[in-house]
Amino acid sequence: MDHFPTNWGRPRNDLHDAYGTYPIHQHPQHAPKDAFADGVKRTQQPIVTGTSVLGVVYKDGVMLAADNLASYGSLARFKDVQRLHPVGNHTVLGVSGDMSDYQYIQKLLEELVIEEFTEQDGSILGPAELHEYLSQVMYARRSKINPLWNSLIVGGVKDGQRFLAYVDLLGTTYKAPTIATGYGAYIAQPLLRKAVEPYTDVLTEEQAQSILEECMRVLYYRDARSLDKFQIATITEEGIRISETRHLASSWSFAEGIRGYGAQTQ
């Protein structure tokens, strides 16, 4: 048996990926392997992973959404994982990618927040400062060719300023009114651009929520590593609210009628 989880559920002998359907780090590899030969060379690959995170700016603040799944390759391994992490009272971090690296990042942030708290100098780390910190950490690790295998979205509100920004395993950063990681960048981002970007100053909390829920539903239909359980984090001037786990209604009855593709009918 192939004990390499990232190969599970994939077509066999698919050595040539003509259409670029695999993320670079997951390129299938079916050659017999020496367990030790490349063990030292191989930098890393994500093992237990979280899929897309979505983030939007709306009238009163910033909203993030992520499902509750942590996958082990194609196996839906942990189905009750929170991937939205509050930091202080102004910031939420949404994490996709490797979940052990995520836990390490949580530890770093806890240390940082306590260090800052004990200063008691009246200044508090806001979303902009935390994003800069994470960018420096991510870039430093990629520069050591030992990356933290994540795409992070940092969202928050402080001093009347809404903040939404991205940083990933390469240290690449950007700010935007809507951000999506992973497959969300292909599937949800266009929907978010259309539904949110012209209206960031008028969208209500309810509207932002329903847009995010709809995007999560589309992702659930299309992304095989997603789950119909998700959470939404809402950050406003008043503080942070992270919702209870919500269930996505979906209907798969259309699948009953499908018999193969194209001309095949039976």
């Binding site: 050595l15 780090h25 050659a31 392997k33 060379k41 191989r42 890393q44 060719i145 990356p147």
Partner: peptide
């Protein structure tokens, strides 16, 4: 020949620290 390609030694799957941002 799939087999001969498969045996050309370990494929390098190294982390690429670069990307292009246009």
């Amino acid at each position: 020949d799939v087999q001969s390609v498969a045996h050309q030694g370990p494929q390098s799957r190294q982390f690429n620290p670069y990307t292009e941002n246009g």
